[in-house]
Simulated assay, not measured.
Amino acid sequence: MANLKELRSRITSVSSTMQITSAMKMVSAAKLNKAQMAITAMRPYANKLTELLQNLSASLEGDSASAYAEQREENKILVVAIASNRGLAGAFNSNIIKASKELYENVYSGKQVDFVTIGKKVNDIISKTHSVVSNKNEVYDDLTFANVAAIAEELMEYFTSGSYDKIVVVYNKFKNAATQEVITEQFLPIVPISGEAATNTNLDYIFEPSKEEIVEQLIPKSLKTQLYKAIRDSFASEHGARMTAMHKATDNATELRDALKLSYNKARQASITNEILEIVGGAEALNN
């Protein structure tokens, strides 16, 4: 009977876990719908704005070139690692941590590499072994363009002041609910379009005011939009990853519960059979 009691306890525990994971799946699905619409709506605008700025930057030379496009020897690197404040999202956070450490250990080995973390999970791990100059977990409390723009301005200041020679962003790009791609994207300096791509997009524009003024006004906005897009991509990816993880957890809990119920029924049947055999055996002993 002790075995039956243990099985009943496990069935109750697994059923409770299944209800929790199922509820979390539905919550993430609702949040994913809103986050997906947001990133889908802004991605074409952000990509076109970045392309336009790259074209204009490529056409500027000498003293006219923007300070944000200045190419330097890459001695001091700043990595912006974007993850989430919460777990239970499969490999979502661990993939960003792995990619960030890969940059430190292999891509920029022997150079000064510091981090700006966005997300509690990545900050908790990276800060133990690497230099974190700033932590921006609070941006998820109110994910607006204005709040992200403040972070982008801080990054731009790091670059223009010479504190860092290169700034890269690591984040999960949203593809669909089940697929997220880890992206390492150069934030600063701006990478101008070159070669055949520049030739194909070099159209004859009339600029008013001057090309230089347009570039200087649009570059900060473009960089803010680029960072906002990356965080929005990561935000949608987080909910997609969590929904998928909770869906799998619910399926696994359902399978385990069914297996435990089967074991419980078999054990109960065996117990009843033993009781019947004992009763029959006792009756036969009395008759003899």
Rank of each mutant, 00 (worst) to 15 (best):
residue 54 Q to R: 08
residue 19 Q to I: 04
residue 240 G to T: 10
residue 50 T to D: 15
residue 269 Q to N: 11
residue 195 G to Q: 12
residue 88 L to Q: 13
residue 56 L to T: 03
residue 8 R to S: 06
residue 154 E to Q: 04
residue 208 E to K: 03
residue 4 L to Q: 01
residue 110 G to M: 10
residue 161 S to Q: 09
residue 273 T to G: 01
residue 3 N to T: 10
residue 184 T to F: 05
residue 197 A to I: 09
residue 65 A to S: 05
residue 239 H to Y: 15
residue 214 I to N: 07
residue 183 I to Q: 07
residue 229 K to T: 00
residue 147 N to P: 08
residue 127 S to H: 12
residue 36 Q to T: 05
residue 174 F to N: 04
residue 287 N to C: 13
residue 236 A to R: 08
residue 85 N to V: 05
residue 287 N to R: 11
residue 267 A to W: 05
residue 12 T to R: 14
residue 165 D to C: 11
residue 148 V to L: 01
residue 82 I to Q: 04
residue 279 I to K: 06
residue 232 R to Q: 10
residue 41 A to T: 13
residue 198 A to M: 11
residue 67 A to F: 09
residue 172 N to G: 02
residue 249 A to L: 13
residue 78 L to V: 02
residue 136 K to H: 12
residue 83 A to R: 02
residue 117 T to M: 00
residue 147 N to H: 14
residue 189 P to Q: 04
residue 237 S to H: 12
residue 175 K to Y: 10
residue 9 S to W: 10
residue 259 A to D: 09
residue 94 S to I: 01
residue 56 L to Y: 07
residue 188 L to N: 03
residue 198 A to R: 11
residue 229 K to E: 12
residue 137 N to T: 07
residue 49 L to D: 07
residue 14 V to R: 02
residue 213 E to P: 01
residue 75 N to R: 09
residue 74 E to I: 00
residue 78 L to G: 00
residue 259 A to P: 05
residue 214 I to Q: 06
residue 235 F to E: 03
residue 96 I to T: 04
residue 213 E to G: 11
residue 7 L to V: 07
residue 84 S to N: 11
residue 280 V to K: 05
residue 208 E to M: 14
residue 87 G to W: 11
residue 81 A to R: 00
residue 112 Q to F: 12
residue 50 T to A: 06
residue 189 P to H: 01
residue 26 M to P: 07
residue 229 K to M: 04
residue 191 V to N: 05
residue 277 L to K: 09
residue 170 V to G: 01
residue 4 L to S: 02
residue 260 L to A: 08
residue 187 F to R: 00
residue 16 S to T: 05
residue 176 N to T: 01
residue 200 N to V: 09
residue 48 K to F: 15
residue 244 T to S: 14
residue 88 L to G: 06
residue 247 H to G: 07
residue 150 A to V: 04
residue 203 L to T: 00
residue 152 A to H: 03
residue 275 E to C: 11
residue 44 P to I: 07
residue 136 K to S: 00
residue 179 T to K: 04
residue 81 A to P: 00
residue 64 S to G: 02
residue 242 R to H: 03
residue 246 M to K: 06
residue 62 G to Y: 08
residue 201 T to K: 14
residue 112 Q to P: 08
residue 222 S to P: 09
residue 9 S to H: 15
residue 219 I to S: 02
residue 40 T to I: 11
residue 106 N to K: 09
residue 276 I to S: 01
residue 22 S to A: 10
residue 135 N to T: 07
residue 226 Q to L: 03
residue 246 M to C: 09
residue 171 Y to Q: 02
residue 89 A to Y: 01
residue 172 N to P: 03
residue 146 A to H: 13
residue 206 I to E: 10
residue 281 G to M: 03
residue 129 T to Q: 12
residue 88 L to A: 14
residue 63 D to E: 15
residue 24 M to E: 12
residue 196 E to H: 13
residue 213 E to T: 06
residue 247 H to M: 10
residue 133 V to F: 04
residue 105 E to R: 10
residue 26 M to Y: 14
residue 284 E to I: 11
residue 283 A to P: 06
residue 140 Y to H: 08
residue 144 T to K: 10
residue 162 G to E: 12
residue 181 E to L: 11
residue 198 A to K: 01
residue 194 S to W: 05
residue 168 V to E: 09
residue 159 F to Q: 01
residue 278 E to H: 13
residue 123 N to I: 03
residue 272 I to M: 15
residue 179 T to H: 14
residue 22 S to F: 13
residue 165 D to M: 08
residue 88 L to I: 13
residue 74 E to K: 06
residue 95 N to Y: 03
